[in-house]
Computed example of a mutant assay.
Amino acid sequence: MTQDTRPLIRVVAGILLDSDGNYLLSSRPEGKPYAGYWEFAGGKVEAGETNFQALQREFEEELGIRILAATPWLTKIHSYEHAHVCLKFLWVNPDQWMGEPQSREGQAWSWQKAGDFTVAPMLPANGALLRSLSIPRRLYGSLKTGLHGENSMGAYRVLPLGSAEGSGANVLMEAAQWQDRPEHADSVWMMVQTREQWRQAQEKGADVVVWRVGNAAQAAAVDEVLKHGVSVPLVVAADVQTASHCGGQWLAAGAHAVLADEKMGNGNG
């Protein structure tokens, strides 16, 4: 695969949620590349703007929505026919925006459920992103026995590879088990503890990465990775005390979820 040598254009997009957990999608207006395709609203970061300032401007210009706050989520590099872009997706919770969506550029807009999108065609860069949206941002349980949470479609479970119920659609596994990954799993969650394992997880195509934090060095490694942006949802798992102390910082930096695992830190983690 030939490397794209065109200048990288910075673009931001917002994952805007309503009070029911639905996400806002809009269509690209006539006159733009991929006109009629659906995407998360946003646009190019202009000179002198931060990502957040660009998001605020774009949502006001396109949809008449005022963005009050946002947190980083995923960073994607994508080569279109017309541009080579670095897409920064920012997460906007229901209490972090004001207004009602308006079609200020003649575009259509629609609220959609994670895991059950009904609009098409979708912008090519957003395929994997849409699957990631179905992953709950609050997870409970243990890496030993499995994780559970809830999204807008209902209950969500992740089961360890080889467990009694291991035929589930979402599978949790060690990096060393990758050769045994189920072919038909809806998603594969790889557990890592080092930067090298993090790199391997991305190369191998893990859908979600779970970083186990058991000491200060591992916590610092997570901080460094989040600072540069992550391309797949990153769940940070730590003992209850560490999760309570550092969880807010990790979420603000772009972690998808923080798991307070009671089985970690007591000799069983």
Score class of each variant (00 low, 15 high):
11 V>A: 09
15 I>M: 12
17 L>I: 07
22 N>V: 05
23 Y>A: 13
25 L>R: 14
26 S>N: 08
28 R>P: 05
30 E>M: 13
32 K>E: 11
34 Y>M: 14
39 E>K: 10
43 G>F: 00
43 G>S: 06
45 V>W: 00
52 F>I: 13
54 A>G: 09
55 L>D: 04
55 L>H: 04
56 Q>P: 06
57 R>H: 10
58 E>P: 00
60 E>D: 14
60 E>H: 08
61 E>V: 11
62 E>G: 01
67 I>Y: 05
67 I>C: 09
71 T>L: 14
73 W>F: 08
73 W>T: 10
77 I>W: 07
82 H>F: 14
88 K>E: 15
93 N>S: 11
95 D>A: 12
96 Q>P: 01
98 M>Y: 03
101 P>A: 04
102 Q>P: 01
106 G>R: 12
109 W>A: 13
116 D>F: 10
117 F>I: 13
118 T>Y: 07
128 A>M: 14
132 S>Y: 14
138 R>I: 13
138 R>Y: 14
140 Y>P: 00
147 L>Y: 05
150 E>D: 13
150 E>L: 08
153 M>T: 14
160 P>D: 06
161 L>N: 08
163 S>P: 04
165 E>R: 14
169 A>V: 07
172 L>I: 09
173 M>T: 05
178 W>R: 06
178 W>K: 02
179 Q>H: 14
180 D>S: 12
186 D>F: 05
186 D>A: 11
188 V>H: 03
191 M>H: 01
193 Q>F: 00
199 R>H: 11
199 R>C: 07
203 E>H: 10
204 K>V: 05
208 V>E: 03
208 V>P: 06
210 V>Y: 06
211 W>V: 00
218 Q>G: 10
219 A>L: 07
219 A>K: 03
219 A>E: 12
221 A>S: 15
222 V>S: 08
224 E>H: 11
226 L>E: 08
227 K>C: 10
228 H>G: 04
229 G>H: 07
233 P>Y: 09
234 L>Q: 01
236 V>E: 10
250 W>Q: 03
253 A>D: 09
253 A>S: 15
254 G>D: 10
256 H>I: 04
257 A>C: 05
258 V>S: 01
259 L>M: 11
262 E>F: 01
267 G>E: 03
